[in-house]
Design a protein around this nucleic acid. Structure first.
Lengths: 120, 120
DNA sequence: CCGTATCCCTTAAGATACTG
DNA sequence: CAGTATCTTAAGGGATACGG
């Protein structure tokens, strides 16, 4: 895996892995994979995220150019969030691959975790 | 991306993304992609990680069954860390894909970040 | 060389209440 | 509905210094 070594050296790998450093960001990205969603729908789709953290996470995704925000004026206000091209490429590539890996290896992973918590 | 929606629902996606939740873990995994390494070599290969955090990260990778530890007795002590089969599958799959994505999209990502930091 | 033990600082994240 | 404002707690991470 030669590319990764380069990536470590110049920290570009960290630039990418940092996108997954916040608990809810990847989940929000996955939730947006189906298409644009209103803020409140995102909130319930994801489940268990607070208003504050939701806003922070969305702002971060905005700032990283992974998500777009559209205000449809009026009352009550309506705001849609959608993946950008960059966001889509991240979701359809690495995140999807991670989803596949999870399906294939969740058992082993949970096994290992259980084993290690029995023998601390 | 239907699978991901399931994954969100039952939290399995989070079980996987949590593996990338700690700053150094993916970098250590990448550094181990070439083969087993001694602790000190890992430390310098990665660069900028403290002893304490290195130990914590390695313990976590151990606990998740991604890495194996081998003590070769003697003085000075020598300890090798290596990817397990599970760890290898994670590196060769999702992490590698993330590395590829980074190479392809680092410019766009850094652009977006720069743009958003100019307009906070 | 391989860790452990402290201490400190920053930040993530949860809960809750409130405004436009 | 969308988002802000506070406050609190917990945890991650960095910097030493020390011991086996």
């Amino acid at each position: 895996m030669d590319e990764c070594v380069e990536l470590i050296a110049d920290c570009r790998l960290r630039a990418a892995t940092d996108l997954f450093l916040h608990r809810w960001d990847p989940v929000l990205l996955a939730a947006l994979a189906e298409g644009p969603r209103r803020r409140v729908d995102l909130r319930t789709a994801v489940g268990g995220i607070s208003d504050k953290v939701l806003t922070e996470s969305l702002r971060r995704l905005l700032g990283n150019g992974l998500v777009d925000r559209t205000r449809h004026g009026g009352a009550p206000p309506r705001v849609d969030y959608a993946l950008t091209a960059l966001g889509t490429s991240l979701v359809e590539g690495p995140l999807r691959e991670l989803g596949r890996w999870t399906l294939a290896h969740a058992d082993e992973l949970l096994d290992a975790q259980a084993r290690s918590s029995r023998t601390p």
